[in-house]
C-alpha cells in the first residue's frame, strides 16, 4: 500500500471517535457537557501515544513496529490537537454566551485548559515536513512544548474532577517509558566507560 493510502487510513481511524461525538451531539443523543470529558481524554491519550514512541523505541531498539509508530507520531500529535479543539468547541456549545466563558477564565480548572491548548498550538502548527526542514534544531525545541502541554492538561483534568487515579493512570505508561529510556542511557554510558 502506498504512503498516501496508509496516511489516509490512519487519519480515518483517528477521526472515528470525533465523528461519533459530533454525530451523537447533532442527533441529541448526548449533551455538549457529556462530550467534554471524552474529547479531552482522547486528546490526552493521543498526546501520550505520540510521546511514548521515542523512549520505547530507544529502549527496545528500532524494528518495523517502532518505525511505523515513529512515522505516525506527528499524525498522533496533530490529532491530539484536533481533539483539543473539538473539546474547546463543545465547551463553547455548552456555555450560554462568550461573557460566561470569560467569566470562568479565572478558575484554575479552566485557565489550565486554555494554557494547555495554547502550548499545543506552536508544535501542532509546525508539524509538517517543510517546517521541520526550515526550523532545523529549533523544530525539536518547539515540539518539546508538548511535555508542558501534557502536564498542564493533566492538572486541568485533576482540578475539574478531583480524582487522582485517572490522571495518574494516563501518566504512568509515560513515566515507565521515560524510566526505561533513562536506565538504557545509563547502561550505555557505563558500557562506554568500561571500554
Amino acid at each position: 500500500m502506498s504512503r498516501i493510502v496508509w496516511k489516509a487510513l490512519c487519519w480515518a481511524i483517528l477521526a472515528i471517535p470525533g465523528l461519533g461525538m459530533i454525530w451523537q451531539f447533532s442527533h441529541n443523543d448526548m449533551l455538549a457537557m457529556d462530550i467534554l470529558h471524552p474529547s479531552g481524554e482522547i486528546s490526552i491519550r493521543l498526546m501520550i501515544l505520540a510521546m511514548l514512541a521515542g523512549p520505547l523505541s530507544e529502549f527496545f531498539g528500532l524494528n518495523r513496529f517502532f518505525r511505523a509508530w515513529l512515522a505516525m507520531r506527528r499524525n498522533l500529535g496533530v490529532a491530539a490537537f484536533g481533539y483539543a479543539i473539538l473539546h474547546l468547541a463543545f465547551y463553547f456549545l455548552d456555555m450560554p454566551d462568550v461573557a460566561a466563558v470569560l467569566d470562568e477564565l479565572g478558575i484554575a480548572g479552566i485557565w489550565t485548559g486554555w494554557l494547555a491548548l495554547a502550548l499545543m498550538i506552536p508544535p501542532a502548527s509546525i508539524s509538517f515536513d517543510k517546517a521541520m526542514q526550515r526550523l532545523g534544531r529549533k523544530w525539536k525545541m518547539i515540539q518539546r512544548l508538548v511535555y508542558a502541554a501534557l502536564i498542564i492538561s493533566l492538572v486541568h483534568w485533576l482540578l475539574l474532577d478531583w480524582d487522582w487515579w485517572p490522571a495518574f493512570i494516563h501518566l504512568a505508561p509515560l513515566m515507565i517509558a521515560w524510566g526505561l529510556r533513562w536506565s538504557s542511557a545509563r547502561r550505555k554510558a557505563s558500557l562506554l566507560r568500561s571500554i
Partner: peptide, 23 residues
C-alpha cells in the same frame, strides 16, 4: 523552562486553594 513551570505550578496551587475533591 523551569521558571515557567514553577510559575504555572504556583499559580495553579494559589487559584485552586478553595477546591476540594468531588470525585
Amino acid at each position: 523552562y523551569r521558571l515557567a513551570l514553577a510559575a504555572i505550578a504556583g499559580a495553579t496551587l494559589l487559584t485552586a486553594a478553595p477546591a476540594y475533591a468531588d470525585g
